Simulated scan of single mutants.
Amino acid sequence: MSLRAGNSSVVSELVTLPPGSFDHAQPGEFLRDNHPAPAPIVREMIGTPLEIMKFQVTASDYDRCVSDGACKPADSRLAGNVPATGVSFLDAQAYASWLSAKTGESWRLPTDVEWAYAAGERFRTDIEGGEGDPADPAKRWLTQYRNETALGRKPDPEPRARGSFGLNSKGVADIAGNVWEWTSTCYAHATMSSGGVASSIGNCGVHVVEGFHRTYMSNFIRDGKSGGCAVGTPPDNLGFRLVHDRGGFLQAALRCLGLT
Rank of each mutant, 00 (worst) to 15 (best):
Asn147Phe: 04
Ser193Glu: 13
Trp115Tyr: 15
Asn203Ile: 04
Val179Ser: 00
Glu121Cys: 06
Gly152Cys: 14
Pro134Tyr: 08
Asn178Pro: 05
Gly177Tyr: 00
Gly132Val: 12
Thr143Gln: 11
Ser200Trp: 09
Thr149Gly: 01
Ser193Arg: 04
Gly166Asp: 03
Ser194Cys: 06
Gly163Leu: 08
Phe212Tyr: 11
Ile175Glu: 05
Arg122Val: 10
Tyr117Val: 06
Gly211Leu: 15
Gly166Pro: 10
Asn178Leu: 13
Val197Ser: 08
Thr143Lys: 11
Trp180Ala: 00
Ala176Gly: 13
Pro137Val: 13
Arg153Leu: 13
Gly202Asn: 13
Pro137Trp: 13
Pro159Glu: 07
Gly132Tyr: 02
Val172Met: 03
Arg160Asp: 03
Ala188Phe: 09
Arg140Gly: 06
Val208Ala: 08
Glu114Pro: 01
Pro155Gly: 11
Asn203Asp: 12
Phe212Asn: 04
Asn168Met: 05
Gly163Phe: 02
Leu151Arg: 07
Cys186Tyr: 00
Ser199Val: 12
Gly132Ile: 12
Trp180Leu: 12
Arg162Lys: 11
Pro137Ala: 07
Gly195Asp: 09
Thr185Gln: 08
Trp141Ile: 13
Trp141His: 06
Glu210His: 02
Asp126Val: 15
Cys186His: 04
Val208Pro: 11
Leu142Asn: 14
Val197Met: 06
Asn203His: 07
Gly177Val: 04
Ile127Cys: 12
Glu131Met: 15
Arg146Asp: 05
Asp126Lys: 03
Arg146Ser: 01
Pro134Leu: 02
Gly120His: 10
His207Phe: 13
Leu142Arg: 15
His207Leu: 14
Asn203Pro: 02
Ser164Phe: 15
Ser164Cys: 11
Gly130Thr: 07
Gly195Glu: 14
Val206Arg: 00
Asp126Arg: 01
Asn168Arg: 05
Glu128Phe: 08
Asp126Glu: 11
Ala116Thr: 09
Asp174Thr: 07
Ile201Gly: 01
Trp141Arg: 06
Gly166Glu: 09
Gly171Ser: 15
Gly166Ser: 08
Tyr145Pro: 01
Asp174Trp: 00
Val208Arg: 04
Lys154Glu: 02
His189Phe: 10
Arg140Asn: 06
Pro137Ser: 10
Ala135Glu: 07
Ala188Gln: 14
